[in-house]
Design a protein around this nucleic acid. Structure first.
Length: 171
DNA sequence: CCCTAGCGGTGCT
DNA sequence: AGCACCGCTAGGG
């Protein structure tokens, strides 16, 4: 994903899996990018001052990401700014956040959970538009029959995230 | 396994 | 308004 207009500041998060990039708006964390490999070293936004609030949010984001990547129990999240999404997308993202760690749901189950049982494909679209992957766990959504299904970007991330939290799936 | 029809949100024209 | 694109699914060879 790419930082959208709402982004005020972007800060990197170094992990054992590489350097993530977190985007913040006035309202909270509004985006998270997987390590890209092509990122210029040291970029962290053009902000001259980092407010105490932003520092807190970033610390929470870093800790939450580390826990999530390790498949550990969830840590407190910073406030999330998901206002970029359409009402439909936001309702899907809300449903994703209710899937417990270590569990999978099918796209059809998520569609049912938001009261739109036939909007199954659209749920896939909304998952793909998730601006804060990992912390908003779109990777827990599988195709029917616990099959892996798709992922925007590198499907290996989905395998890895599911594997680390012990979700069983078939290819 | 493959193929197909049906599905609904989104983005572009 | 129209249309193509999809992280899908159930049903049928």
């Amino acid at each position: 994903m790419t930082p959208h207009k709402r982004t005020r500041c972007s800060l990197t998060i170094s992990t054992a899996d590489g350097e993530f990039l977190a985007h913040y708006s006035e309202q909270g964390l509004c985006g998270l990018e997987f390590p890209s490999g092509t990122r210029r070293p040291g970029v962290s936004g053009r902000q001259s001052k980092i407010s105490p609030q932003l520092k807190l949010w970033h610390r929470l984001a870093r800790e939450a990401l580390e826990h999530a990547l390790a498949g550990q129990p969830p840590a407190d999240l910073p406030p999330l700014d998901l206002s970029i999404g359409t009402p439909f997308q936001q309702s899907v993202w809300r449903a994703l956040r209710r899937i417990p760690r270590g569990q999978g749901r099918s796209y059809a189950e998520v569609a049912r959970a938001i009261g739109r049982p036939k909007a199954v494909r659209a749920v896939g679209g909304a998952c793909g538009a998730n601006p804060v992957p990992v912390l908003v766990p779109c990777h827990r959504v599988l195709a029917a029959g616990q099959r892996l299904g798709g992922f925007s970007g590198d499907l290996n991330w989905k395998r890895r995230l599911l594997g680390r939290e012990g979700v069983r799936f078939s290819e």
